[in-house]
């Protein structure tokens, strides 16, 4: 996407979270590389993946 409303960095972060949940190693690596190039901190990446895993777990248990 050329100009995401949420900003390139956050859009990549969301994409990484979705890729992690979908279990696509290739996509995770690609989005992670983009994020590192954009100067994202490791902590932001870890937190995005943490939130993704917790939301998925909540969905699995409750529904």
């Amino acid at each position: 996407m050329m100009k995401p409303v949420t900003g390139k960095e956050f859009f990549e972060l969301m994409s990484l979270a979705v890729s992690a949940v979908n279990g696509c190693e290739m996509c995770v690596n690609a989005h992670e590389d983009s994020l590192i190039k954009l100067g994202t901190t490791e902590e932001r990446i870890f937190d995005a993946v943490r939130i993704a895993s917790l939301v998925t777990a909540t969905g699995k248990i409750i529904f």
Binding site: L13, M14, A17, V18, T41, D47, I51, A52, V55, G59
Partner: peptide, 21 residues
């Protein structure tokens, strides 16, 4: 809640995952 992401960002990531699931 997150120390490194604001609440809006947490909500949007949660939303993208919820829709994906």
């Amino acid at each position: 809640t997150s120390q490194f992401l604001n609440n809006k960002e947490c909500g949007l990531i949660g939303l993208s995952i919820a829709v994906n699931n």
